[in-house]
């Protein structure tokens, strides 16, 4: 009774939404409230674009949609408030377990470090830390897998698709030019 089939409400697929139809999950009410407040804020902002100026104003559709957001968010909040709380779940265990919080923080750190440190070092750090924590395998295995996959990703995006990720502290362009010169020299 206490244990709920995890496949049923872990929300792994969009097709089987994680919400429960007849119970309120921990934090759901707060989320619904935040959504309503955010919708109100956006509605106000949409009104600020052009007011009730004209049917064709750039603010017309934004106002209509944010109004729809406010209405639906209010209905959702009302419906959610009526549902009984699911007592078998807890916020820390089912919604925000430690690993999820940690990975969310990892991602934030990734975003912050990406520009100053550069793509290659940041990604290497991220992959090594993430795989080590999740996999709990030896350092050699962890670093090997991380570096290998990073090199593959880098080759595809940087060399084939010429996506210039922030170079940061790594002199990427000079390195590539160096190899280009080597190959050009070899060809001559």
């Amino acid at each position: 009774m206490q244990h709920i089939d995890p496949d049923h409400h872990d929300g792994t697929s969009d097709a089987t939404p994680g919400g429960e139809p007849d119970k309120r999950r921990p934090g759901e009410l707060v989320f619904a409230l935040v959504m309503l407040l955010a919708s109100l804020f956006l509605l106000n902002s949409a009104y600020g674009i052009a007011g009730f100026d004209a049917l064709s104003s750039p603010g017309a559709i934004p106002m209509a949609t944010t109004a729809a957001m406010v209405l639906s968010a209010a209905v959702i909040l009302w419906n959610t408030a009526k549902l009984p709380l699911d007592r078998t779940e807890s916020l820390i265990k089912d919604i925000l377990p430690l690993t999820v919080v940690m990975f969310a923080l990892f991602l934030v750190a990734f975003g912050v470090l990406l520009k100053p440190l550069g793509f290659l070092p940041t990604s290497a750090l991220f992959l090594i830390a993430a795989i080590k924590i999740l996999g709990k395998r030896s350092w050699l295995w962890t670093v090997g897998i991380a570096v290998f996959s990073l090199v593959v990703v880098w080759l595809i995006f940087r060399i084939v698709f010429t996506v210039l990720m922030p170079a940061g502290i790594v002199p990427e362009a000079e390195l590539i030019q160096f190899f280009r010169n080597v190959f050009a020299g070899g060809a001559q």
């Binding site: 002199p171 362009a173 000079e174 390195l175 590539i176 030019q177 160096f178 010169n181 080597v182």
Partner: peptide
């Protein structure tokens, strides 16, 4: 990168990279 730099100082002219 030191190697790359020395290799290009021979012709340290613009453009030395892409």
């Amino acid at each position: 990168s030191a190697l790359a730099l020395t290799a290009t100082t021979v012709a340290a002219e613009y453009p030395e990279k892409e």
